[in-house]
């Protein structure tokens, strides 16, 4: 491996890295919001919306992100909906992630024993208070390991963005291999940057999992 080549590749990879994490984290934030809304709608059995949320979750959990992106980016403009590549990446990741997060939050909410709610109500808290102060914090705590797993999964999924011509890490690697044939160097940088992106999250995830273990209600 040639260190000079690695050095010359660095700026391009750094730029691609920033783009990848920007879209990745925006998408994850969107996934959080969509997932939370969808889980509430399903948990509180809100008529009509509950159905829609249920269909949405099944549809997006059972299709690959790549196919979703192709449809949003290449298909939707044909019926007049044009979305920029970056927005499309965020939206695609948000929709995919939202369906996973929804399942995670929903099972978190379901896992809270009824006694928690009954006790809080009998202490004179209002329904709103019970949900905000008791149920939601507990449900989120229970969900921490699954949320961490989802975040890692979604960050890995960012690797398909090059298909909608975003200049992300994969795109950069493929481009450089095609241009200069320094395959080893290009692949090394690719692995390096994905490790920088995912290793801290993976370590934080396992720390968070250990912290919340044994702090579940009713245990």
């Amino acid at each position: 491996m040639d260190p000079e080549v690695l050095k010359s590749y660095l700026p391009r990879y750094a730029e691609a890295f920033l783009l990848t994490i920007k879209i990745g984290w925006l998408g994850i934030a969107l996934a959080f919001v969509i997932g939370m809304l969808s889980a509430f709608v399903i948990h509180f059995r809100i008529p009509v919306l509950k159905r829609i949320a249920g269909y949405y979750v099944e549809l997006f959990r059972n299709t690959p992100l790549l196919v979703q992106l192709f449809f949003i980016y290449f298909g939707l403009p044909k019926v007049g909906i044009v979305i920029s590549a970056e927005a499309c990446g965020v939206l695609g990741l948000g929709l995919l992630g939202g369906s996973y997060m929804s399942e995670t939050f929903r099972s978190g909410l379901e896992a809270i024993p009824a006694a928690q709610k009954e006790s809080a109500l009998s202490l004179g808290m209002s329904r709103g208070q019970v949900f905000r102060e008791i149920i939601l914090p507990e449900a989120l705590t229970i969900s921490v390991p699954a949320i961490a797993a989802n975040v890692i999964f979604l960050l890995k999924e960012t690797s398909v963005f090059s298909a909608i011509s975003l200049m992300d890490l994969m795109f950069t690697a493929k481009d450089l291999i095609g241009l200069y044939y320094d395959t080893t160097e290009a692949l090394f940088m690719l692995v390096l940057f994905y490790t920088i992106m995912l290793l801290p999250v993976s370590i934080l995830g396992s720390i968070a999992e250990k912290t919340v273990r044994g702090k579940m209600p009713g245990q």
């Binding site: 890995k156 690797s159 994969m170 690719l190 994905y194 490790t195 995912l198 993976s202």
Partner: peptide, 11 residues
């Protein structure tokens, strides 16, 4: 767990 499958495919 850490490497995207896409990266492994490229490798």
């Amino acid at each position: 767990r850490i490497m995207p499958q896409m990266v492994l495919l490229f490798l």
